[in-house]
């Protein structure tokens, strides 16, 4: 179970992970400490493993930098639920093993910050325990599910190679 961090439309990659750090090599912890720095300074301090982000339209537009996904993943975020994702951001999410779930506007509106939520990736079920409702989404297709379960596409390939 995790808590909801609630954000609006058009959150760009620059506020998720500031451009000034893009070419700096950093540890996972340091990366997590800059997550959402310019949008919500309370996030990095208070985020817990298993929390989820619920956002509006066009989450993650802007640059193709993978750190904008990675920083949230290493901060403990279990899934991002949004009305829509920027194309490259969506691909980066899956390929780095962070589930990106798309819901309709009306369903997104049902979530508030700090709601306690369970996300069952495998069966495609989101349970909001605070507000007592359940939303279903189509589970990821086979290969994509394998990538997510492995924690990313590179890890997935690694596993394949080592199991051979």
């Amino acid at each position: 179970m995790g808590r909801v961090w609630r954000y609006g439309d058009d959150v760009n990659t620059d506020v998720i992970f500031p451009g000034k750090y893009t070419y700096k090599i950093m540890s996972d912890e340091e990366m997590a400490s800059h997550a959402l720095e310019d949008l919500d300074p309370s996030f990095a301090k208070n985020v817990k493993v298993g929390d989820i982000i619920v956002a509006g339209k066009n989450w993650g537009y802007g640059s193709s930098r993978e750190q904008a996904v990675k920083c949230l993943k290493v901060a403990g975020i279990k899934a991002i639920i949004a009305e829509s994702f920027a194309r490259i951001y969506y691909r980066n999410c899956i390929n780095l093993g962070l589930p990106a779930i798309t819901l309709k506007h009306d369903d997104i509106e049902k979530f508030d910050a700090n709601d306690e939520v369970d996300v069952d990736i495998e069966n495609g079920i989101i349970v909001n325990r605070t507000k007592n409702f359940e939303i279903h989404f189509p589970p990821f297709e086979g290969y994509v599910m394998d990538i997510i379960k492995a924690g990313g596409i590179i890890e997935y390939i690694h596993r394949q190679v080592s199991s051979q």
């Binding site: 193709s64 490259i88 691909r91 390929n95 596409i153 590179i154 390939i157």
Partner: peptide
């Protein structure tokens, strides 16, 4: 597509 994705296709 991205470069990592091309590498992944080469592999899989």
């Amino acid at each position: 597509i991205g470069r990592s994705e091309v590498a992944a296709i080469w592999a899989t």
